[in-house]
Structure formats: C-alpha cells, structure tokens
C-alpha cells in the first residue's frame, strides 16, 4: 500500500491505519511530497512592484529545510510502520501531492492508496473540507483509496 505522509500526524495516522488494515507483513510504501502548498504561503505578502525574488541562499535554505523535514517525517513514519510489522520503503517526491501520489500508485501498481482528509494546515474557519490532495486522489487514483478522517480527534471513517 502507498501511504502519503505529511509529517504532522504520523502517530495518529498509523494508530488509525492499524485499526483498519492489517499492517503485519504488509508492504508499505511511504511517500512524502514536497508540494507547492506550503510555499504558496511565501507569496502571501504583497510583493514589491518590480517583483521580488528570494536571494539564492534563501532558496537553498528553504529547499534544505523541506528535505530535512521530509526525511525526518519519513523516518518517524518508517519506525511506526516497522513496529507494526510492515516491510517499509520510503520516497520523497516533489510536485503537486495529489498528482504525484496517483502517478506513483499507477507506476508501482500498489493495491491501496492511503491519504488523510483535511489537507494541510488551513485555518479552522468555515466548513471542513477534504482538502485538494485527498479530493484529487479520491477522484483520480487508479487503485482503491482509503481515506482517513478526523485523525486528530482519534476517530476514523
């Protein structure tokens, strides 16, 4: 199975997953996607007329921080999956998360894709949403999808 890891909910993700799916001896592919979502926050401040570009050293630092954060998230998720008895492979991808996950699911011919609803860290204002990634994967995945909701409140559906 292919599990999308975002690093924020590893404990809850695997607690829910282990209740719904037999992880022992399962082959789990953990994927972390460095997507444009968080970066779009950098564009929140109104740019100066004339455009503003990050100095190259800042750009490098951001990429390094994203890779380091992703590697740590994958390492933590790997430990959780292994402790549940699964055999684990990890990968870091770049691009729009929904598309990246669907492409890997098709290429690796996985049996199941696991994503969590709610997407990224949006303000808890207004109606709840699946989030663009979960919605995209649900719509376009070439294989069955297991959608996990309400992880932070300890409920699954």
């Amino acid at each position: 199975m292919l599990v999308l890891v975002n690093g924020l909910h590893n404990q809850e993700l695997f607690a829910s997953l282990s209740r719904l799916v037999r992880l022992k001896e399962a082959e789990v592919l953990l994927a972390f996607v460095r997507g444009p979502g968080a970066r779009s926050g950098l564009e929140l401040p109104r740019p100066r007329p004339g455009g503003h570009h990050l100095p190259p050293h800042r750009e490098r630092e951001l990429i390094e921080a994203e890779i380091a954060g992703g590697a740590e998230a994958l390492s933590e998720a790997e430990e959780l999956a292994r402790s549940a008895g699964a055999s684990v492979e990890t990968m870091q991808l770049t691009g729009e998360p929904g598309r990246a996950i669907c492409e890997v699911a098709a290429r690796r011919k996985v049996d199941l894709v696991v994503v969590r609803a709610g997407g990224r860290d949006r303000p808890p204002l207004g109606p709840a949403s699946l989030g663009p990634t979960a919605r995209f994967v649900t719509d376009h995945s070439p294989v069955p999808v297991l959608l996990l909701r309400n992880l932070s409140r300890g409920r699954d559906s």
Binding site: L42, E61, L62, A65, R120, P123
Partner: peptide, 25 residues
C-alpha cells in the same frame, strides 16, 4: 517583515516539522 522574515520563519518551522501556514499568516 514581509519580505525577509517570511522565508526565515518558513525555514525554521519546516525544519521543526510544525504546521507552516499559521506562522506565515
């Protein structure tokens, strides 16, 4: 604040694996 502090904060919270967006907002 907007131009320099934003990427610095992004870098710090990404490394700390915190939710990025509340801090950028």
């Amino acid at each position: 604040t907007a131009i320099i502090l934003t990427p610095v904060v992004y870098s710090v919270v990404t490394r700390l694996r915190l939710r990025v967006m509340p801090y950028l907002f």
